[in-house]
């Protein structure tokens, strides 16, 4: 996983609440067996007409935002399905940070597994950042994860919260399977205790 330390880039404003994962990447594009290549279908229904032509009014189709790396949205971003294809599509397009008042739990969690930083900031702050973003390509916003600040184009710094462990994994670019496997003896002990104390506990056999 690519580490996330600082990012300076164009931010795209998406002033919508409840942006669900079907909006981020519709189900019909989930048939891939790869993690890459989903960026061209990011926000497919909002971005293209049914005939496949770009909708010029959609933010990511406007010249100033085509290379956006930060997305700013309203409440409950990423609600709906658990599809990791949603952060994969954002990442494949080039979005590495999403700022919103709050996020749906599974989407929030999935972002960290893919080097995307989701930042929770109050609605009024998101609206102010959207006004910055509306200035277009010249209004670059900086995210400094080690210092936990968003830096506006005028230099004002806005602090944000993030759990220490999530920050550590993201800054170091660590995959958490390796970290968990270091705890394998504890997992072994748990399974052993289960076979002693709850010997009725059934397993699944392969015969179908």
């Amino acid at each position: 996983m690519r580490a996330f330390t600082t990012l300076t880039g164009v931010a795209a404003p998406l002033p919508m609440a409840n942006v669900d994962t079907d909006k981020i990447i519709p189900s019909r594009f989930l048939k891939t067996i790869e993690r890459t290549g989903l960026g061209r279908h990011l926000f497919d229904g909002l971005r293209y007409t049914p005939q496949g032509e770009e909708r010029p009014d959609f933010v990511l189709n406007q010249p100033a935002y085509r290379s956006a790396e930060i997305l700013i949205a309203h409440e409950n971003f990423g609600c709906g399905s658990s599809r990791e294809h949603a952060p994969w599509a954002l990442l494949d397009f080039g979005i590495r940070c999403v700022i919103a008042p709050d996020f749906a739990d599974i989407f929030y969690n999935n972002c960290f597994k893919n080097g995307i930083l989701p930042i929770r900031l109050p609605r009024a702050v998101c609206d102010a950042l959207m006004e910055d973003a509306a200035l277009g390509g010249n209004a670059r916003i900086t995210i400094d994860l080690p210092r936990q600040v968003v830096i506006r184009p005028d230099g004002e710094e806005i602090a944000f919260d993030i759990e220490a462990m999530r920050k550590h994994l993201l800054v170091e670019g660590l995959d958490d399977i390796g970290q968990t496997l270091q705890r394998a003896p504890a997992i072994d002990r748990f399974e052993h205790r289960r076979t002693v104390e709850q010997s009725w506990f059934p397993s699944v056999s392969a015969a179908f």
Partner: peptide
């Protein structure tokens, strides 16, 4: 509860998840 694909891999490999 539902999980993403990275966590599917985590459970397949470790039979556990990191959770708060």
């Amino acid at each position: 509860f539902g999980i993403g694909t990275s966590e599917v891999e985590h459970v397949l490999a470790t039979q556990t998840l990191l959770q708060k």
